[in-house]
Nucleic acid binder design. Structure first.
Length: 516
RNA sequence: GGCGGAGUAGCUCAGGUGGCUAGAGCAGCGGAAUCAUAAUCCGUGUGUCGGGGGUUCGAAUCCCUCCUCCGCUACCA
């Protein structure tokens, strides 16, 4: 399908100093659902993910591991690439900040900012701990019993100054506030925009955007003693992927400004304040939306290395099934909220919603057809009110789900689809096609046709969330590959009576506890 | 401390520009059915809508106040 509609969604680039965990998977899956939905809805889509590889932490971790930072980054970046594969992500690009294309983009952004007088050389001063190799903010310091200021780690701190380039962030306070006012949906959930605005209102200071204290970063053009501040480096990846600094390319024109930057709530500020400020200062357009989602606890506990409860998403997918994990993460809680991931919850949720409601609906309908209609799509007769009500609900779903997806309300979208799943199960019981098989065969055909059409829609619409399960469902309805986009929603692409169907098999297994 | 959000059935939440007998899912209880993955369907909630006060013919929904919880309050990412 050709179209002039385009959609650009990004995950953050993940820091190679971390091991992939459920939080990374969550962000990426949300992006993936958006990307898949928009593709099915006729958009030209670009979904970007990747890894963030510069910074003092990486430099130090590499040192500790006895390898050079590039080798360290190569190794850990590969873990995130594997994660994308294991999750079945449909990303169109995987960017690494150590790639030449990205270094070029960053240096060009820098030049632009410099030319436009947005960056100046000054000196960065602050409380520095030699032992921790880190600066601390005034507020973080603690006063020791002897009256001396100490780092929160207890280390000695000293007041030091180093030369640094600064970005005139202070100049963008009002333009940012104007931008927020003009784009009230720039940050979602809305409560997060309030936080961002109050932060900006409280006053912005110029930002140190270069460092001389370590080397693992992108050299500042014409002053290679400095490397760029990691966030200026990292955020620019969103531009790199669409071809920047070449703003004339097809990709750049189609995809910039980005439609959604999906981020965890911890990095919202960088995306909602620094990033639009950098862009405006470079005379580039700010993104259309930043969505800040919440965090998962594990069995009621915060995930942490020390608790050793860090969940490997690949293991989860192996244990529960990839589509089950996808469904659970996006259905269990309002997107944006924090939630708890527990074994009990995912089993309850997926057995109840997926196996019992969704999978079993498909199975009962398909096997009724297999047994009573010689395995062919039945021929419908006249439709009564009950038939029209169910079909109408199925046909009307797209518009409603689309509205939910457009504000990243994944849980609402799924809830809405499930109202039709439940309605369909109720319809099966009330119509009792197994009884009609003995009393009124033509009516039975109508009922089963209505049901087949209904599950076709339920299959089409759930594709972004569960590509595997829905693929099996659509296969069993003999829906051709080219009739699986949302263009096939509605009666225009209805199943053709008489079409031969494959033998039905279950599409979603129940999770059965291993008996000890 | 400052700013912001939230407190609604056992659980998770929706509603909230004031006005149908306050809703959904799950759990529980009762029943039906037997096509299906022992899956499904139907029925069932006397809830102080956090407490108190106020405005109003009428408030979960507006105002005041109190209590509780949560988030944000910049340069490791």
């Amino acid at each position: 399908m050709t179209t002039d509609k385009s959609f650009y969604v990004t995950s953050p680039i993940y820091y190679v100093n971390d091991a992939p965990h459920i939080g990374h998977a969550y962000t990426s899956l949300a992006c993936d659902v958006l990307a898949r939905f928009k593709r099915l809805d006729g958009y030209r889509v670009r979904f970007l993910t990747g890894t963030d590889e510069h910074g003092q932490k990486v430099e130090k971790s590499a040192q500790a591991a006895g390898v050079d930072p590039q080798a360290f980054s190569d190794r850990n970046s590969a873990k995130f690439r594997n994660l994308s594969q294991a999750l079945g992500l449909s990303n169109d690009d995987f960017i690494r900040t150590t790639e030449p294309r990205h270094i070029a983009a960053c240096q060009e952004i820098w030049r632009r900012l410099k030319e436009r007088g947005q960056i100046y050389l000054g000196s960065y001063s602050g409380w520095y701990s030699v032992r921790d190799e880190a600066y601390y903010a005034e507020g973080e310091l603690v006063t020791a019993p002897d009256g001396e200021k100490r780092a929160p780690t207890g280390a000695d701190v000293e007041w030091v100054e180093e030369p640094s380039y600064f970005f005139k962030l202070s100049a963008w306070q009002q333009p940012l506030l104007d931008y927020y006012a003009k784009h009230p949906d720039f940050v979602l959930p809305q409560a997060r925009l309030n936080e961002v605005m109050s932060f900006v209102k409280s006053g912005l200071q110029d930002l140190s955007v270069s460092r001389t204290s370590f080397r693992w970063g992108i050299p500042v053009p014409e002053d290679p003693a400095h490397v760029m501040y990691v966030w200026l480096d990292a955020l620019t990846n969103y531009l790199t992927s669409v071809g920047f600094p070449d703003t004339k390319t097809d990709d750049y024109r189609a995809f910039w400004p980005a439609d959604v930057h999906m981020v965890g709530k911890d990095i919202l500020r960088f995306h909602a304040i620094l990033w639009p400020a950098f862009l405006m200062a470079a005379d580039l357009e700010p993104p259309k939306r930043v969505f800040a989602h919440g965090w998962w606890t594990i069995e009621g506990q915060k995930m942490s290395k020390s608790l050793r409860n860090v969940v490997d998403p690949i293991e989860l997918a192996k244990k529960y099934g990839l589509d089950q994990v996808r469904y659970f993460l996006l259905r269990e809680l309002p997107f944006g909220n924090d939630g708890d991931f527990s074994h009990k919850a995912i089993v309850h949720r997926t057995n109840g919603d997926l196996a019992n409601d969704y999978g079993n609906l498909a199975q009962r309908v398909l096997s009724l057809i297999a047994r009573n209609c010689a395995g062919r799509v039945p021929t419908p007769g006249p439709l009564d009110d009950a038939d029209n009500a169910l079909l109408g609900a199925a046909h009307g779903l797209l518009a409603e789900v689309r509205a939910d997806i457009d504000v990243q309300a994944f849980h609402e979208a799924l809830d809405r689809i499930w109202t039709v799943v439940r309605a369909a199960n109720g319809y099966v019981d009330r119509q009792a096609p197994w009884a009609l098989a003995k009393s009124d065969v033509p009516r039975m055909g109508t009922v089963l046709y209505v049901l087949a059409e209904t599950i076709r829609h339920l299959g089409l619409l759930a594709q972004p969330f569960m590509p595997g399960v829905t693929g099996k469902l659509l296969d069993q309805l003999a829906v051709p590959a080219d009739q699986r986009t949302f263009a096939s929603i509605g009666p225009g692409s209805a199943l053709t009576p008489g079409t031969e169907l494959p033998k039905p098999t279950g599409i979603v297994p129940r999770y059965v506890e291993a008996t000890p």
